[in-house]
Design a protein around this nucleic acid. Structure first.
Lengths: 216, 216
DNA sequence: TCAAAAGTGTTCTTGATACACCCATGC
DNA sequence: GCATGGGTGTATCAAGAACACTTTTGA
C-alpha cells in the first residue's frame, strides 16, 4: 500500500447498543459503496472541517441509520496503517446507548440498510470494526457501576427488575436480587417514581427513573 | 475563523511525566515557530501518513526533546474547533512516563528548548495543552493502582519507600507505611531483588523491581 | 387457590484502615 | 551511642456476598 504523504483522513465510528429487555443489540448498517460494499459495518464516516468529533458521530449516525443520539463516550482512536484500503484513515470511536424502540431506522447516504443485531449474532464486520466493537463492549462493562451510563439503555421509567436484567446481560453473570437492589439504590443514580405497573398478572412493580445528573 | 472544507489535520501531543524522588515533573518544549512561538507547550506535532499515532508521538517526542519513549497510554482526542489558530487540527494525546535522569534533553526541529518543570510550577501553555495536561494528571491518578503504570516512573531497582513517595505525590495524600507495603506487594506488580542499598547512614533498604508483565 | 414476579434483613466474609515499636547502619 | 530511615502485626470497621420467605395481583 502507498500513503500519500502528509495526508491522514479522520473518521468517526459509533458502537451503538440497545437493550430489548432480554438481549443486548448492536446497530449496524450495510455498506452501499466500496470498500466492503454489501458488508455490515458500524455507522460512521469522515469528519468535516467545521464539526467536532461528537458532532460528526451524531451526524453520521443520523444519516446512515436515522438514529438521533448525542454520542455518549469516546472509546479511543483506531489507527492501524492498513485498516482502510482507501488509504490512511484514523478513526475515533464512540459509544452510544439508546432504546431500540425509540428509534425509527432509516438508511440514507452510503448505507443500504440499517438493522439491529443480537450481540451474540453479529456478522463479520468491515474494516477493523470487530476490534472497535470489542473495545465498546469492554468499556460498557467497565463503566457499568461507575456512572449512569448503562441506565441510558432503559427508558424514562423502569423497574428495578428491568435494570437487573440489563446489568446481568452486560456483566454476563446473574446477580442476587437483594444485593443488586441495595447496591443500585445506594449509588443514588435512580429515584423511585409514584407510578407502578398496571395490569400485570402479579404484584405491580414500582417504577424508577435515572436521577437527573447534578450538573444540570 | 474559516475552515478549508474536507481537511482535518491530525496531530499528537505527549504528556510526559518524570519523578525525581521528591516531585512530579512535566516535560515541556518552548515553541520556536508560530503559532505561540516562544510559549511553552507539550511535545507533539502532526501525524505523517505512514505512521501510527504512537509512532508519531514517539517521533515528535524524540525530535523535540531528545527523550526516547514508547508512548504509554492514549488519553483521548482533543477536538475543539478553535484549538489551533492554523485551522482545523484534532490532536490525540498520549501519556508518557520516564525517569528524568535517564533522559538527555536535546531540542531540535520546531522546539527552541526542552525542559522539565515542577508540576506545580507549570507556565501557561500553548493551544489547549492546559486541558490536555489536566486529563493526563487525572488519568495517571486513576490508573495508579490498576496496573504497573506508575512504577514506570521509578528505575529498574527501587525501594518500597521510593514507591511510596511516588504514590503519595501522585495521589496527593500521605499513606500509611505498613498499609502501603501490604497493598503494593499484594498487587504482585513488584518482586524483591537480592540487592540492598549500600553506604546509607541507616538500615539498608531492599530493592524491588517491577515484575515483568505476564504478556512477555 | 394458584401461578408469577415483587419485595425485603441478617449473617458472614473479606478487604481497607488505624496505629507504635524495634532494627540495621554510618558517623 | 545516636541519629536516620527500614521494616513489621493486630484490632477495628465497612463494603460486598450469601442466603429464603412473604406479598401482591390477575386469571
Amino acid at each position: 500500500m502507498v500513503f500519500p504523504r502528509g495526508i491522514v483522513s479522520l473518521a468517526v465510528d459509533c458502537v451503538v447498543f440497545g437493550f430489548t429487555g432480554e438481549r443486548l443489540r448492536l446497530l449496524l448498517i450495510r455498506r452501499a459503496v466500496a470498500p466492503f460494499a454489501g458488508m455490515w459495518a458500524l455507522p460512521g464516516g469522515f469528519v468535516e472541517a467545521g464539526e467536532t468529533l461528537r458532532a460528526a458521530a451524531g451526524r453520521e449516525l443520523s444519516e446512515e441509520s436515522g438514529v438521533a443520539l448525542a454520542a455518549v463516550e469516546e472509546i479511543g482512536a483506531f489507527d492501524a496503517l492498513d485498516r482502510d484500503p482507501r488509504g490512511r484513515v484514523v478513526s475515533v470511536a464512540f459509544l452510544g446507548l439508546v432504546r431500540p424502540e425509540d428509534c425509527v431506522l432509516a438508511s440514507r447516504c452510503d448505507a443500504a440498510e440499517a438493522r439491529w443485531f443480537d450481540l451474540d449474532a453479529v456478522p463479520a464486520l468491515a474494516f477493523d470494526h470487530g476490534a472497535i466493537l470489542r473495545r465498546g463492549r469492554d468499556r460498557l462493562r467497565d463503566a457499568l457501576w461507575s456512572g449512569p451510563l448503562g441506565l441510558r439503555l432503559l427508558g424514562d421509567a423502569f423497574t428495578l427488575t428491568d435494570a437487573q436484567r440489563l446489568y446481568e446481560t452486560i456483566g454476563g453473570a446473574p446477580l442476587d436480587v437483594r444485593n443488586f437492589r441495595k447496591r443500585l439504590l445506594a449509588t443514588g443514580l435512580v429515584v423511585p417514581l409514584a407510578a407502578r405497573q398496571r395490569g400485570v398478572a402479579h404484584r405491580a412493580a414500582r417504577y424508577y427513573a435515572c436521577r437527573p445528573s447534578p450538573s444540570g
